[in-house]
Computed example of a mutant assay.
Amino acid sequence: MPHELNAFREVLQAHATDHASKVAARGITSNVTYAQLLAEVERREAWLREQPDGPFALALENGPEALFWDLAALFAERPSVILPPFFSAAQRLHCLMQTQATLAVANDSFAEDLRAAGFTPGERFWERPAVLDAGLPAGTAKITYTSGSTGSPKGVCLSATSLLYVAQELEVASRPTEPTKYLAVLPLAVLLENLGIYAALLAGASITLYPQAQMGIGGASQVDWKRFLGTIALSGAESLILVPQLLLGLVTAIERGMMKVGPLRFVAVGGAKVASSLLERAEAVGLPVFEGYGLSECASVV
């Protein structure tokens, strides 16, 4: 097991021991403590280790269950791909066929996608036999897909070492502001969000994980601003990650007096070019925004 991966497990074990009753993840219907988180992850890790080798596909809405499976695949050292909910059915099929995933855990809404790719439902997993070797590089922990500018989505293969090194650096970068409550705004399929959650776990923060629709976000660009801003306020978030469009809406709302900066201490923004004028507006209203830049090939943040 890579050193970074073993160190990540040790951090979660320490949280589960030293802060057993602290909330690790908040979902729509339930909260999960750090002790419960570790137990749920290790149970799913054991299930994955019982299965034949092969990439693992995850198609769940944001929530504690998705976090359990994502971490379980990481610790089981099984290559995984999280299917982006904002992709078309054809794009998701491309991801499944290109990765040659043999196992999947999915919401009912993704059942048609999985059947189209040759999967059948089993006791715990959707399953299909391996047809050919996808040619994943040795040590691949996650295949993250980016739509790119043209053609089919591109899959980028990343190691656990790369992912966790960036997560550790994100945690270090946010440490001076000491955020203890993190709101996951973007889908887990977005690598930057995935890493943001790892960073929050390293810090021992409490993570709020709601489905996109619950927060008023639909698809890649539709936003119910009243619901979205309300989610930020009610969650008590001290840290979150936004794309420029969402940052623009948040800054505009603060400028118009529709909401306050409140407890927000570290607002990361990335995923696309951010206008300098928008960063200046954020600074003017006292919103602590930190711009990041990177490529998927570099585990999202450089």
Results as ranks from 00 to 15, higher is better:
residue 115 R to F: 02
residue 91 Q to T: 07
residue 73 A to T: 04
residue 126 W to E: 05
residue 77 E to H: 07
residue 76 A to K: 00
residue 68 F to W: 15
residue 52 P to Y: 00
residue 42 E to V: 02
residue 116 A to D: 07
residue 141 A to I: 05
residue 70 D to P: 03
residue 42 E to R: 09
residue 160 A to Q: 04
residue 51 Q to P: 01
residue 122 G to P: 10
residue 120 T to H: 09
residue 128 R to I: 13
residue 151 G to M: 05
residue 122 G to D: 13
residue 130 A to M: 12
residue 36 Q to K: 04
residue 49 R to N: 14
residue 103 L to N: 03
residue 110 F to E: 10
residue 50 E to M: 08
residue 152 S to D: 13
residue 148 G to F: 00
residue 139 G to E: 05
residue 64 P to V: 05
residue 86 F to D: 12
residue 62 N to S: 14
residue 78 R to Y: 13
residue 83 L to D: 01
residue 102 T to G: 10
residue 152 S to T: 11
residue 73 A to C: 02
residue 136 L to R: 11
residue 130 A to P: 07
residue 162 S to W: 06
residue 143 I to G: 01
residue 139 G to T: 00
residue 111 A to T: 09
residue 92 R to H: 07
residue 53 D to Y: 09
residue 58 L to S: 13
residue 30 S to C: 10
residue 34 Y to W: 07
residue 76 A to V: 06
residue 51 Q to N: 00
residue 73 A to P: 01
residue 105 V to W: 04
residue 150 T to Q: 09
residue 158 L to I: 08
residue 77 E to M: 00
residue 107 N to K: 02
residue 90 A to M: 12
residue 45 E to V: 03
residue 83 L to V: 00
residue 151 G to A: 08
residue 110 F to N: 04
residue 63 G to A: 15
residue 80 S to A: 09
residue 46 A to T: 08
residue 101 A to F: 10
residue 79 P to M: 06
residue 157 C to A: 14
residue 101 A to H: 08
residue 161 T to G: 11
residue 111 A to M: 07
residue 99 T to V: 11
residue 60 L to A: 05
residue 29 T to C: 05
residue 36 Q to M: 13
residue 48 L to E: 05
residue 57 A to P: 03
residue 89 A to L: 08
residue 93 L to F: 11
residue 47 W to N: 03
residue 39 A to T: 15
residue 59 A to H: 01
residue 108 D to N: 07
residue 140 T to A: 04
residue 128 R to K: 15
residue 65 E to M: 06
residue 118 G to A: 10
residue 131 V to H: 10
residue 55 P to R: 08
residue 84 P to A: 08
residue 56 F to E: 01
residue 56 F to M: 09
residue 157 C to R: 11
residue 73 A to S: 13
residue 118 G to H: 04
residue 31 N to D: 15
residue 67 L to F: 11
residue 123 E to L: 14
residue 132 L to C: 13
residue 111 A to G: 08
residue 31 N to M: 12
residue 51 Q to I: 02
residue 150 T to V: 08
residue 92 R to T: 04
residue 49 R to E: 11
residue 55 P to N: 13
residue 46 A to L: 09
residue 83 L to A: 02
residue 61 E to H: 15
residue 98 Q to G: 04
residue 77 E to Q: 14
residue 132 L to Q: 15
residue 144 T to F: 01
residue 28 I to T: 14
residue 71 L to R: 00
residue 76 A to W: 01
residue 98 Q to A: 09
residue 131 V to K: 13
residue 72 A to W: 03
residue 127 E to Y: 12
residue 125 F to C: 01
residue 156 V to C: 07
residue 144 T to C: 10
residue 96 L to M: 01
residue 37 L to I: 06
residue 151 G to S: 05
residue 140 T to Y: 02
residue 59 A to R: 05
residue 148 G to K: 00
residue 64 P to F: 10
residue 87 F to K: 01
residue 110 F to A: 13
residue 124 R to E: 10
residue 47 W to K: 14
residue 101 A to L: 09
residue 149 S to D: 04
residue 150 T to S: 11
residue 46 A to H: 14
residue 65 E to R: 14
residue 81 V to K: 04
